[in-house]
Nucleic acid binder design. Structure first.
Lengths: 262, 262
DNA sequence: CGATGTGGTTGACAACGATCAATGTCCCCT
DNA sequence: AGGGGACATTGATCGTTGTCAACCACATCG
């Protein structure tokens, strides 16, 4: 649980495991090309030889649930790109209390550039696959390519906006509202993945983590979406997958409170 | 209340008002030099002649309480710097509901650079004095000065962190906790202003706005800090000024976090 | 195969906060 | 000075949610 960057991000010692970090640059490029996150945009903007060199320095890592990738107040020497799984940004207070302040899903990038140290811990909420770039090299690429750096800057502007969107979500009054907002955002973000005609949303968090993130208790959450299920807005496939039956009603439920009379 | 950017940020027509936008560059520099925000750092990093030119293009504006400076989804042609007063970033939902998602206090900069349009409205919560730079010129300065652009980038990283800090504040605890957190942050941010030996915090928001921002009702807030006053943690001077009597107790009162155990 | 542990759900109850209503204060306006 | 309005506060009541508890499904392990 408290394994630090040093062990978590060091290439796996030659053991029984497949040495995945030796993937070819082409294979890596294929692995990231499906998304439309920052990294893809950066790779598009760079000269072919630069992307080649950047990818050649990348290493692939498997992390287990609960592993800490980057510890707070520690200067990380890597920049990470999420291929698979879910990570959390965890704010750790002095007295040891923790709070999830953000999620990292596939195509997200993490790791503080240019300046200072991380302000929160990066922790795996599920098993995950991570692509790691040497931070110094990554920074140098940005320095050498103003256009890429501007992409990064615009990306940061978007991140600030996203953070404020979460703020808006959190200010939702009732727990049902917050959960509905959360599902709506997840639905919007991952609309590429559809199963059949219906939209199935994968919630990559345990009940406890999700409740914590949304500022509620597992019990309250449970009641929240069983209420939504009762309204016919969604169907609980298993505690991790929700089928959204009525998208508009879900959005409505995230805004104003449901009229509970029927 | 709904005056748009066009009227609010256009140099005041020659009328009875003092033409304040004609301040000398030296006077402007003096006006911003007291803080340690982004703008000061940028001016420090730039060549003297560049800062001179930048400041020569700045205009000073007085805004009244309730004025809208930048409308959502409108591309602003200005970058603003808060000299005095308090502005709010207001998210406007489709149904006309509004929500404050961030505050702007003196030395803060606002206005989206390089890309796209504003995602929220900028609204004055109190009378304020704003310094405006032409956006295009501001961007050009950053383009021409990589060091300045990097300062801006690091500033954005800080903003993301700040937004997440607010998220931490907002997350589901009791109203007293949120208010105590809020005061703590304000206390930390404006520690330069002290009156006598005691710390007096100026809360630049009406009860309604503050309640809205903290996700509570005015009534609840009122009870919250009268509770803190009863405990001897602070003293209410007037509904806008609080004297913090026991800083540590205030921080403790903000502490009751939902615990996310390991 | 039962013992044990973990995560999710459900129920009962109390605490917290929203809502409604009333009062007081200050400021602006005529 | 008097009246209207905005704002802050206080009290009463009710809905929502946190808390404590039990229960269930399921996986792991001896």
């Amino acid at each position: 649980m408290t394994r630090s960057l040093k062990s978590a991000l060091r290439p796996a010692q030659g053991g029984g495991e497949m040495p995945e970090q030796m993937m070819t640059a082409r294979a890596l490029k294929a692995a990231v090309s499906h998304g439309n996150g920052l990294l893809e945009k950066l790779l598009d903007a760079l000269q072919a030889d630069v992307t080649e060199r950047l990818l050649s320095q990348a290493t692939l890592h498997d992390v287990d649930v609960g592993e800490t990738l980057i510890e707070r107040s520690v200067r990380s020497e890597s920049v990470g790109y999420v291929l698979d799984g879910t990570l959390a940004m965890v704010q750790v207070l002095e007295d040891g209390k923790k709070h999830i302040v953000g999620l990292l899903v596939p195509t997200d990038i993490f790791g503080r550039l240019f300046d200072g140290t991380a302000n929160y811990r990066i922790e795996a909420l599920s098993a995950a696959r991570i692509l790691c770039f040497p931070r110094a090299f990554f920074e140098q690429v940005l320095r050498d390519n103003p256009e890429a750096e501007r992409l990064f800057l615009v990306h940061l502007l978007d991140e600030v906006d996203a953070a404020r969107e979460w703020l808006l979500l959190m200010s939702g009054r009732k727990a049902v509202n917050r959960f509905a907002s959360f599902l709506s955002i997840l639905l919007r973000r991952s609309k590429s993945k559809r199963i059949g005609g219906q939209a199935v949303v994968h919630v990559p968090l345990s009940r406890k983590d999700l409740a914590h993130y949304l500022g509620a208790r597992p019990e309250t959450l449970s009641r929240a979406f069983h209420e939504l299920e009762g309204k016919g807005i969604l169907r609980i496939i298993d505690p991790g997958h929700f089928e959204v039956l009525d998208k508009q009603a879900l959005i409505d439920a995230s805004g104003d409170d449901l009229t509970l009379d029927d």
